[in-house]
């Protein structure tokens, strides 16, 4: 147990992933769903870095993680812009209420 290896990080990332999924499925606040997505992205990035450190991939995993971080930032910016608009139109941030297209 005292030698930390790849499996430790992978299990940790799996736990993060499941927490993120739970948050994404249960939260009704749209920003909460975004937070869940960030958790899932972090789990994936953690996996990539762990493989870069303990696997045979070299630095490729770290480069991929850089792109993940960039994409997450872009995604958050767009998502918040959409939520602000959503709030302006519907006067709520409850994601379940965005069903006006249902007819």
């Amino acid at each position: 147990m005292l030698t930390i290896g790849l499996t430790h990080y992978l299990v940790l990332a799996a736990a993060l992933l499941c927490c993120g999924l739970y948050v994404m499925t249960t939260k009704r606040n749209a920003v909460g769903i975004l937070i869940g997505a960030e958790l899932v992205l972090n789990a994936a990035a953690l996996n990539l870095v762990a493989f870069a450190r303990y696997g045979a991939g070299g630095l490729d995993g770290q480069v991929a993680t850089l792109f993940v971080i960039v994409l997450a930032a872009a995604e958050a910016a767009i998502a918040i812009a959409i939520f602000v608009n959503y709030y302006r139109v519907l006067a709520t941030i409850d994601a379940d209420r965005g069903d006006t297209l249902k007819g």
Binding site: V31, I80, F83, V84, Y86, Y87
Partner: peptide, 9 residues
Amino acid sequence: VIVFGVMLT
């Protein structure tokens, strides 16, 4: 940005 979004919404 997220916290900002929370405060705006």
